[in-house]
Design a binder for these strands. Structure first.
Lengths: 123, 123
DNA sequence: CATCTACTTTGACTGAGATCGAATCAATCG
DNA sequence: CGATTGATTCGATCTCAGTCAAAGTAGATG
């Protein structure tokens, strides 16, 4: 029950934001809820992490594989994954010793729609 | 001539980034060039500014109109507009005393494409 | 249960960025 | 040309974010 409310801090509450920003001005509320998601994408490491996860066949990637792809310490990678997770762009699942991350495509799609200009997206 | 090179600092050099990040992993170089654009969108004020500009009929908006829409000082709005301009999301044009901003839809479209998941965008 | 590996959390440091007031620049008008 | 209005730049402040080392947690394994 309260589980839903917790999500308000994260990615949820974006349901009314699925509108291209070129079609009508964002409200202050919408902008404040959307901005953190784009901010999360505003770091090169997180962009690559998300791309590595989202483009991986099987849809999930182990943290160990992600860490190897960067010249950064494990805590730093873990930090970036947490940012992506808190905002709802990825989810994680523990399997044995390993933790697997998966991309939340619906969240990505929403962020893409907001930036779209190709009138086809105008509901 | 050198005008083209200047753009490298800004939005240009993104030509090879017009690929959904779900289709294949971004390279470190691509991520480093894309991230600043999303970071620019990672502020509620800038998101609203861009939306106000991009959704305005006539395609251009005077700074004075933009400033009125926020409880912020003119220097702050000017700062945010500069960020959007430097990254290539908007352009500005002086007409008499007033300065008009216009959205650069191609830049928006690229950022939307990178986040798209609807396979239709997969070149 | 002790230990090893995988991952996360904590704390500290450092640099970046949002904001404002004051000063500056640009164009218009008396 | 002095003054006024619109917009940007500058300098300062204050908060936030990326990074790492060290410590902590969670399973697996002997």
């Amino acid at each position: 029950m309260s589980k839903q409310r917790v999500a308000i801090t994260g990615a949820a509450a974006l349901d009314d934001c699925r509108v291209p920003l070129v079609s009508e001005p964002l409200t202050a509320s919408q902008a404040e809820r959307l901005a953190p998601s784009y901010k999360a994408l505003g770091d090169p490491v997180r962009l690559r992490l998300l791309s590595l996860i989202a483009s991986h066949e099987g849809g999930q990637v182990c943290v160990c594989d992600l860490t190897e792809a960067f010249d950064l310490t494990a805590p730093t990678i873990s930090h970036h994954l947490k940012v992506l997770k808190d905002i709802g762009l990825v989810t994680s699942e523990r399997r044995g010793t390993w933790v697997y991350y998966r991309a939340e495509r619906a969240a990505l799609d929403l962020l893409s729609t907001v930036l779209s200009v190709s009138e086809a997206a105008v509901a």
